[in-house]
Structures are given as structure tokens and as C-alpha cells.
Simulated scan of single mutants.
Amino acid sequence: MPLYRFAGRMPVVSERSYVSEAAVLIGDIRIGDDCYIGPGAILRGDHGTIEVGLGTAVEEGVIVHAFSGSVCRIGKSVTVGHGAVVHAENIEDYAVIGMGAILSLHVKIGFWTIVAEGCVVKNRQIVPGGVVVAGNPAKIVRDVEDKDRKFWLWGKQLYVDLAHQYLREGMELVEKDCGMPKS
């Protein structure tokens, strides 16, 4: 797992969490239990601190960077979708950050909030708990419903299970021809 010390700060990752060999963790980063950090994810705690709570998935291609001297807290059971950019100050428990969403500096995302795919949450914007936001800039479009919670609890468990499977089984590099017959 690629962990980099920077300015005397070093990532700390729970042994119960999976961090892809293709992810990059730099500086002051703390990853809790049962997390999944996917290939291509970059977490930069070079100027600030990044905390990732229990059971959180930081999917492929996500960039997380803590603002200078601050803490970027990502709560427990949060899903950060593929390709999202996170400069947020706080993402509360059970939030969902959609694929390609952008959370600017000092953003705060509430408990069980869903940020839609491609949404842009502006600098210092505070999004309350239990709502769905979409657009650029982010605007509340509706309340989170029971069906949303049910679906996302399933999805969150899927990534916890996937992290444990990767830890148990590992991955095997496949030769270039992938076993295909030669012509």
C-alpha cells in the first residue's frame, strides 16, 4: 500500500481496511476500520489532516485534499463516488457524494445527505442533513426518502464486504495476453 510521509506526517490505516496499491496516501491521514480506498484515489494530508470514518468507501479516482491547517472529516459509512473532488471541511455520517461531484473548500455536508452526480457544492456552502442536492451550484431538490436509505445501506455494505474480500484474497496480476488464444 503506497503510504508517503511528508513534513513528518504519515498516514495511519486500520488493518481492517483496504487501500489499493494504485491509491496514493500522503501525510496526515487516518483511515478507520472497514474502509475501502479504491484504485486511483489520492488523499493528500500534506497541509492539513484527513480523517476517514468506519465503513467509508472512497471509490476510484477520488481526490481528497485538506485545506492548509484544517481537518477534512469524512464520517462513518460515507460513500464518495468515482471521480469526486473533496476539499470539504466535514461530511457527516451516511452521506453519499455522487460520481464526479465537487465539494469546494470549507463545505459541510449533513447527516444522510445525498450530493448528486456532477453536483458542485460552492466554497463554504453548508448542506443540511437528510436532503438531496443537485446542480451547479448545489440546490436542494428533495428530502432523502426511506427507499434512498435502504438502497445506500445496501451499497455501503457492498463496499465493506469488498474491502474484506480484497484483504482476504488479494489480487493477482494477469499476464498481458490474459490467457486468450494466440492467432
Rank of each mutant, 00 (worst) to 15 (best):
P2W: 05
P2M: 10
R5Y: 00
A7D: 13
A7I: 00
G8P: 06
R9F: 03
M10A: 08
P11G: 10
V12R: 14
S14N: 08
Y18V: 09
E21Y: 04
A22H: 15
V24R: 15
L25C: 07
L25Q: 07
L25Y: 04
I26A: 04
G27E: 01
D28L: 02
R30K: 09
D33W: 04
D33R: 11
D34F: 11
P39Y: 07
L43N: 02
I50S: 01
I50Q: 01
V52K: 03
V52Q: 05
V52D: 00
V52P: 02
G53E: 11
E60W: 06
G61D: 09
V62I: 10
I63H: 15
I63T: 15
I63W: 10
I63R: 15
H65I: 14
F67Q: 13
S68T: 12
S68E: 14
K76W: 02
S77A: 12
S77C: 06
V80K: 00
G81K: 07
G81W: 08
G81M: 06
G83W: 02
G83Q: 06
V85A: 10
V85G: 04
E89S: 15
A95M: 04
V96M: 12
I97T: 11
G98N: 01
G98L: 03
G100R: 11
G100T: 01
L105P: 00
H106M: 05
V107Q: 12
K108Q: 11
I109N: 02
I109V: 14
G110D: 04
G110H: 04
F111M: 05
F111E: 04
T113D: 01
A116R: 07
A116D: 15
G118C: 03
G118E: 02
C119F: 05
K122H: 13
K122T: 15
K122S: 14
V131H: 11
V131S: 07
A134Q: 02
G135H: 07
G135N: 09
G135D: 08
N136H: 11
N136Y: 05
P137A: 03
P137D: 09
A138E: 03
K139E: 10
D143S: 14
V144Y: 05
D146G: 04
D146C: 01
R149S: 07
F151N: 12
F151Y: 15
W152N: 08
W154T: 12
W154M: 11
Q157K: 09
Q157R: 09
D161P: 00
D161I: 01
Y166N: 10
Y166P: 01
R168C: 02
R168F: 04
E169N: 15
G170C: 07
G170Y: 08
M171S: 14
M171R: 12
E172G: 07
E172S: 13
L173V: 14
V174R: 14
E175R: 12
K176G: 08
K176N: 10
D177G: 04
D177Y: 09
M180Q: 10
M180N: 08
K182R: 15
S183H: 08
